[in-house]
Computed example of a mutant assay.
Amino acid sequence: MRGTKRSTQALDNPLAEQAIEWMVLFRSGEATPEDYQRFSTWSAADPRHAQIWARMQGVLQRSFAPIREVNSRAPGQVEAVERIVLRPAASPTRRKVLRGALMLGAVGVATGILANRSMPLAALRADLHTGTGQRKSFTLPDGSTLVLNARSAADIDFSPALRRVRLHQGELIATVAADAARPFVIETEHGTARALGTRFLVRREPEQSLALVLEHSILVRNGSQEQVLQSGQAAYFNRDGITRVTEDIRSKAAWADGMLVVNDETLAEVIATLRTYRKGFIRLSPAAARLRVLGAFPLDDTDNVLRSLEQTMPISVRNFGNLLVMIDVR
């Protein structure tokens, strides 16, 4: 049980993706002396980098045996992945295959993979939480409502003097009931957004948080700074500062209506959203990640979204059962 928990935490760690990319490069046989120098710089830049590298190296030593156990419940899906993984190293798809295999190996235990993709295990400890592909509305004791997007988690801390919601992961939209005696605050590790009106969105990202005002106004604080945002305005905030968003991004709240509205964003950003709505893994090549996307897509049908992207963009989308999708440029 402890091993599964540690492996799941490794997967949730945003630094794990960076470690995986280094592993893919080194195992591809294509690494140059300059690449090893860049890795040395990356490893020394932060103690967490060396720690996640060591952890990911360790979990890769585990075999695929536990994953095969899943096959008894989902026949054919795991074999499809393993056949691709076991292709000769000279195959032109080997580098992409290594990415997928490393992502699977990072969890170490098959049940951990499936459970974490369905519901972030760390989120289960939160007062309010949603799983993969879930959106849910909660009514709070004061009559306010919170709508949580997929794979989100928050704790409620109401006292006679303050109404506080701690957003641990994901994003939410708050519609706040009036109470002049008790301020309403959404808190992340990067700062707070205090309601001065009725409706606003907060999204927690690894390095910063986003606040978007949908009605009236809010006060954003990061500890040493504060800014008032009016309806339609947005800002990113963390301990380093508060940065206003110059364009209108109210469409980012369209998820509450089951839609993903994309206005000239990278494919990497689009796929990051789809991952919260899809239980399998999606691997995206660096070349494809840089492509720009424009459109509106239904969040509750990720297969349809992937087909639409493949039809309208210069990319190939390869499905290996429901467990793995690989996307690359054509």
Rank of each mutant, 00 (worst) to 15 (best):
G280K: 03
T273W: 11
A296K: 15
K279M: 08
E269I: 02
A288V: 06
I282V: 03
R275H: 03
R283F: 05
G280I: 09
G280D: 08
A287C: 06
S285D: 08
T273V: 15
T276R: 12
G280Q: 02
A288K: 01
L291H: 02
A289F: 04
G295W: 02
P298T: 13
V293P: 06
R283Y: 09
I282M: 09
A287R: 04
G280A: 02
A272V: 03
L284V: 12
P298K: 08
A272I: 02
L299D: 15
V270T: 00
L299M: 14
G295F: 09
I271G: 03
A288P: 07
K279F: 00
I282W: 01
F297E: 07
L284D: 03
L294W: 11
L284Y: 10
P286Y: 07
L284I: 10
E269K: 12
A289W: 03
D301C: 06
L274P: 02
A287E: 15
L294K: 10
A287T: 15
L284F: 04
P298L: 14
R278T: 10
Y277V: 11
A272W: 04
T273H: 12
A289H: 00
T276D: 12
A287M: 11
F281P: 00
L294C: 02
L274K: 04
R290L: 07
Y277I: 12
L274I: 03
F297H: 05
T273S: 10
I282A: 10
S285Q: 05
S285T: 10
I271P: 00
D300A: 14
Y277R: 14
D301L: 06
L291P: 02
T273E: 15
A288W: 01
R283D: 13
A288T: 07
A288C: 01
V293N: 05
A296D: 13
